[in-house]
Amino acid sequence: MSWLAKFFPNVGPIWNGDNGVVNAVIQTLYMTFWTTVIAGILGIIIGVLLVLTDEHGLLPNRVVYWITDKLVNIFRAIPFIILLAVIQPFTRLVVGTGIGTTAALVPLVAGTAPFFARQVQNAILTVDPGVVEAAQAMGSSPLAIIFRVYLREGLPELIRVSVLTIISVIGLTAMAGAIGAGGLGNLAIAVGYNSSQYDVIFVSLVFILLMVFIVQFIGDWWAKKVEH
C-alpha cells in the first residue's frame, strides 16, 4: 500500500469521515439513483403525454401539447447551476431545507425530467406508426397501446436514452456541491482543486468514470438483449 501513500498522499487521510471519499461516493450514488427514479417516472409520463397529445398522436390536444412542450423547452434551457439557485424556494417547500444532498434532488429532478421527457418522446416516435395503427385496428385502448406498444416496442431505444440521461445526471451531481449536497464533484473542487490536491481530483474522477462505464455497460447489454 506504500505506493498509494506515495502517489495519493492526500487521499488516505480523508478516505473516511463526513467529507471523505467514501461518503462522497455514497452521496453521488444517492443523488444519481433517486434523480434517475423520480425524473425517470416523470420523464416517461411527460414524454408519453407529448406523444399522445401531438397532432398525429392517439389523443391529439393542441393546448396540452403546447403547454407541455413549452415547459419542457424552458426547463431544458435553464443552465443547471442557475436552476440550483432559482428553484430554492420550491425546494424548501418540498424538502424543508434548501441545502444538502436530499435538497439537491429537487433541482436535479427539475433539470433532468424535461431532458429525459424529450428523449422518451423521441424514443417512442421511433416505434413504427404502422404497428400502432395495427394495435388500434385490433381494438387496443390508448392505455394498452402505451404499455403494450410504445413502452414495449420502444424499449431498446428507451434503454439507450436512459443511459444517456443517467450519465448526464452523474455529471449534474458534480455541480450540486454548490448547494452543499456533497458528492464526488464537490470533493474534486472543494477539497482537491481549492487545496491544490490533485490526487483527490484524480481519485474523484476515477470514481465518476467508473460509474459512467458501469451504467454504459449495463445499458448496452440490456438494450441488446431486448432487441430482436
Binding site: D128, G130, V131, E133, A134, V149, R152, E153, L155, P156, V226, E227, H228
Partner: peptide, 10 residues
C-alpha cells in the same frame, strides 16, 4: 397490412 406491422419485440 403491406408492411405486416408485427411487433419486433414479441
Amino acid at each position: 397490412f403491406q408492411h405486416f406491422n408485427l411487433m419486433a419485440s414479441r
